[in-house]
Amino acid sequence: MFRNIWTIAQRDFRSYFTSPIAYVVIGAFMSIVGFMFFFNLDHYVRQMAFSAMGNKGVSVTDGIVRPFYGNMNVILLFIAPMITMRLFSEEKKMHTIELLMTSPLTLTEIIVGKFCSAMLLVGVMLLVTSIYPIVLFSAFTPDYGPIVCSYVGTFLLAGCYMAVGLFLSSMTENQVVAAASTFGVGLMFWIISWAASAAGPFWSGLLTNLSLIGRFNNFGQGLLNSADIFFYLSYIFVGLFLTHRVMDSYRWR
């Protein structure tokens, strides 16, 4: 079981690096995140100087950590489609899906394996960003709680994007379609809470609860809430389940 998942995950993960995808994705992600961190820091230092003149100060958590990880999530929304678009589309286009589906692996193993390969790449990306907390700790004394929780939250949120992306990639053999729809759906679930204010009380509550970003705030504050974690995990589960349904029906056609 785990061996099979690992076989799939390993191959897909490697192929990120044998194609330019991993380098482009990691490169773009790191340059934008670096840019954001620099100006976050710059802004914060200015504010510090300002508060030294008698104004009320802002903590490192509120001034840098929360906006920084919040921004990182936005960047991930843009990056996610590039990571997931090929996972099934390319297999279908190149007919390699026939190889996978005629080997003694269950569909679940294949899907989880592919999901893991995407999450491994996300893991690598997040690992590289750990340089920024190190910078923070060398200059200030930030709370480690919000930072650790932000990483957990970001990883889970990225998991949701990956699950959506995997699902949409299984629907088409066109990678551009897969990428564009992943971005669209991901963004929609981000901003769905905007509709909440216009909707009635029932829908308002539902829409607020469906919003991906609404759940992230707690993580940024250093709160590990089981309801939030469960929300993200069930979101991922639904995405993978739908992928399973699509791939299963693909065989029937």
């Binding site: 044998t18 194609s19 190149m94 007919h95 390699t96 005629t102 003694p104 692996l105």
Partner: peptide, 21 residues
């Protein structure tokens, strides 16, 4: 199907190869 797949070698119409490998 899993036991069948274990005992079958299959070459589809289009060779199922990964071009980047």
């Amino acid at each position: 199907p899993i036991s069948v797949k274990r005992n079958v070698g299959y070459l589809p119409e289009t060779p199922p190869v990964y071009t980047e490998m």
